[in-house]
Simulated assay, not measured.
Amino acid sequence: MRINLERLRVTAHAWKAMRKRDITPEELAEILRRPAVSEPHKGCVRLSLNGLTAVVATDPDGTSVVVTVLSRNAEQWTDRDVINRR
């Protein structure tokens, strides 16, 4: 899945998660531009960089939608997360 930075929407839930986790818009932009890891996740894509993860969906009109933003290190993903990745 290609992230459309020209047509991007961040959900209210994602903004709230970012505030709660002290993640800045600049950090989100960096994840979207240059993720170290990009993997499918329940019809979306999970992008990770430097312990931060953004889950992004694509609307039918091609708009990329940031669904949520997490602050985790790769070793913190559980077996349940791996199973749910499909």
Rank of each mutant, 00 (worst) to 15 (best):
1 M>S: 14
1 M>L: 13
3 I>C: 07
3 I>D: 08
3 I>T: 11
3 I>G: 08
4 N>Y: 07
4 N>A: 12
4 N>P: 09
5 L>K: 12
5 L>G: 01
7 R>A: 15
8 L>H: 11
9 R>I: 13
9 R>Y: 14
9 R>W: 14
9 R>K: 15
9 R>V: 15
10 V>Q: 15
10 V>L: 13
10 V>C: 08
11 T>K: 12
12 A>K: 15
12 A>Y: 15
13 H>A: 13
13 H>L: 12
14 A>F: 12
14 A>C: 13
15 W>D: 13
15 W>L: 15
15 W>S: 13
15 W>C: 14
16 K>C: 14
16 K>V: 15
16 K>E: 15
16 K>T: 15
17 A>W: 10
17 A>T: 10
17 A>P: 02
17 A>N: 15
18 M>R: 12
18 M>H: 13
19 R>G: 12
19 R>Y: 13
19 R>H: 12
20 K>E: 14
21 R>N: 11
22 D>V: 07
23 I>W: 11
23 I>Q: 08
24 T>A: 10
24 T>G: 08
24 T>V: 02
25 P>E: 07
26 E>F: 00
27 E>T: 03
27 E>P: 02
28 L>G: 05
28 L>D: 00
29 A>W: 00
29 A>E: 07
29 A>Q: 09
30 E>C: 00
30 E>T: 05
31 I>M: 00
32 L>K: 05
32 L>Q: 03
32 L>H: 07
33 R>Y: 02
33 R>V: 03
33 R>F: 02
33 R>M: 02
34 R>W: 02
34 R>N: 11
34 R>A: 12
35 P>M: 01
36 A>D: 13
36 A>L: 10
36 A>T: 14
37 V>C: 09
38 S>I: 07
39 E>Y: 11
39 E>T: 11
40 P>G: 01
40 P>R: 02
42 K>T: 08
43 G>W: 02
43 G>V: 00
43 G>Y: 03
44 C>H: 10
44 C>K: 09
45 V>F: 07
45 V>M: 09
45 V>T: 11
47 L>H: 01
47 L>Q: 01
48 S>L: 10
48 S>Y: 03
50 N>Y: 04
50 N>M: 04
50 N>T: 07
51 G>E: 06
51 G>I: 05
52 L>D: 03
53 T>I: 06
53 T>R: 09
54 A>F: 09
54 A>P: 04
54 A>I: 05
55 V>N: 00
56 V>T: 00
57 A>M: 05
58 T>L: 04
58 T>Q: 03
59 D>E: 10
60 P>C: 08
61 D>C: 09
61 D>L: 03
61 D>I: 06
62 G>M: 09
62 G>E: 05
62 G>K: 07
63 T>N: 04
64 S>R: 03
64 S>P: 02
65 V>K: 05
65 V>D: 08
65 V>I: 11
65 V>N: 04
67 V>P: 01
67 V>M: 08
67 V>K: 07
67 V>Y: 02
68 T>G: 07
68 T>A: 06
69 V>R: 04
69 V>C: 08
69 V>Y: 11
69 V>M: 11
69 V>A: 03
70 L>S: 02
70 L>M: 14
71 S>V: 10
